[in-house]
Simulated scan of single mutants.
Amino acid sequence: MNKAFVKEKEDDDEDDQSPEAVVLPAGTRNYMTRDGYNTLRDELTHLMNEERPDVVQIVSWAASNGDRSENGDYLYGKKRLREIDRRIRFLTKRLEMAEVVDPGKQPDRDRVFFGAQVLYCDELGEEFRITIVGVDEAEPLQGKISWISPVARALLKAQEGETVTLRTPSGVKQLEVLEIIYPDE
């Protein structure tokens, strides 16, 4: 078939989602801690003010060298610009819909809510310490889990000493809340 009749996706502009981006459930807000918001804002600022201008300068220099079809600096630079622009759009959208929550101002500190650090144990007695954070700041290996994760959803609104049920693909588990800590104001 002639290439003129085939629409090829040259630019990934339609897909502003990062591969690691978590889609928020419909009708929910993008809750974030102040630290998480600042981290995303700092990344956006870095991309716009430092990294993008540097790549534009490299692409401009590479384009001035002539034949662009085999110019690695030019081709890589254009690809990197598309990646940066996609990430800028993603961060801008996420920050626009962000709702910053200060867990230190939580009035009901006896229950698990967004921003709480929770110590719990499973049926085998193994203890876990997690902090419930926004989807964009979750780092499970560092103990930061998203508020929409199954564990966080099971723990939300629980009190110290309470046992909650966690439904997983491998079966039902019981988690006991041992301690709830909120950061100081």
Rank of each mutant, 00 (worst) to 15 (best):
M1N: 12
M1G: 14
N2Y: 12
F5M: 12
F5N: 14
F5Q: 10
D11A: 13
D12A: 12
P19F: 08
V22G: 02
L24S: 07
P25F: 06
A26E: 13
G27N: 03
T28D: 00
M32R: 06
T33H: 05
R34G: 01
D35S: 09
N38M: 10
D42N: 11
E43W: 00
T45M: 06
H46D: 09
P53G: 05
D54F: 07
Q57D: 10
S69P: 02
N71W: 03
L75E: 04
R87E: 08
R94W: 03
M97L: 05
A98K: 02
E99H: 06
V100C: 06
V101H: 00
V112D: 01
A116E: 04
L119S: 13
G125D: 05
E127Y: 07
I130A: 02
V135M: 10
E137H: 10
E137D: 11
A138G: 06
P140L: 07
Q142H: 14
I145H: 07
V151C: 01
A152C: 01
A158I: 01
A158H: 05
E160F: 07
L166N: 08
R167Y: 14
T168Y: 03
S170V: 15
V172H: 02
L175M: 12
E176A: 13
E176P: 07
V177R: 06
E179Q: 15
I180Q: 08
I180Y: 08
I180W: 08
Y182M: 08
